[in-house]
Amino acid sequence: MSNWTQGTDPSPYEPELGSLPNGSQTGDEDTVNKTGTTTIGIATDEGVVIATDMRASLGGRFVSNKNVQKVEQIHPTAALTLVGSVGGAQSFIRTLRSEVDLYEARRGEGMNIEALATLAGNFARGGPFRAINPILGGVDDEGSHVYSIDPAGGVMEDDYTVTGSGMQLAYGLLEQEYTEDLSLEDAKSIAARAIKSAVERDTGSGNGVFLAEITDEGVEIQGHNAFDALL
């Protein structure tokens, strides 16, 4: 209330609840859990596919966790990947979820994906989340959307996009296999194959694949330790 009576507006660059901690992401490369990671988003007419590997590492040299779910639902029809600092990404996800819920509760209608991407870009730019490079995938009235969000808050939409340390390996496969008329099933298979390429050769990526399927019905996420059934 004091906010209003003093005539100041809430900052459009900050979350409504909680605040952005001060300072940039610091910490020893070797003690902060990172998802070296390969994460992929593909938009199709039927919906969005997001695929991520399952490895967390310390400094890209020690595997600190072999069973990480790096794609999380943040909206009834959108999901975000964790890329970079695990702590930064988890906090980013919690913040976005509460923003999405508040927006929906106040206005009686959900945030569309463009608004969600803009908000995510604002937070990535302004906050302690800097060491992240996630993909946002979602479906709204306008159709399927995939955005990459960079650590400086850059927000770019594309038909398909990859972030993380294994990105070159995954792009190699996607550049050959992606077509505009992919079905959701085909996109899942291509995404899993692209993750497999990265898992085989990128030391920051490994241990299996999580697949998220996003349609106007919602978000479904499944983990797979083995690739065979998916390819």
Binding site: D9, P12, Y13, R106, R107, M111, E114, A115, T118, N122
Partner: peptide, 18 residues
């Protein structure tokens, strides 16, 4: 200010009801 804040925050026009 609220209308412009919506543009900054969400990149969109504010709804009349909001």
């Amino acid at each position: 200010r609220r209308a412009q804040g919506e543009q900054l925050r969400y990149g969109q026009q504010i709804g009349v009801e909001t």
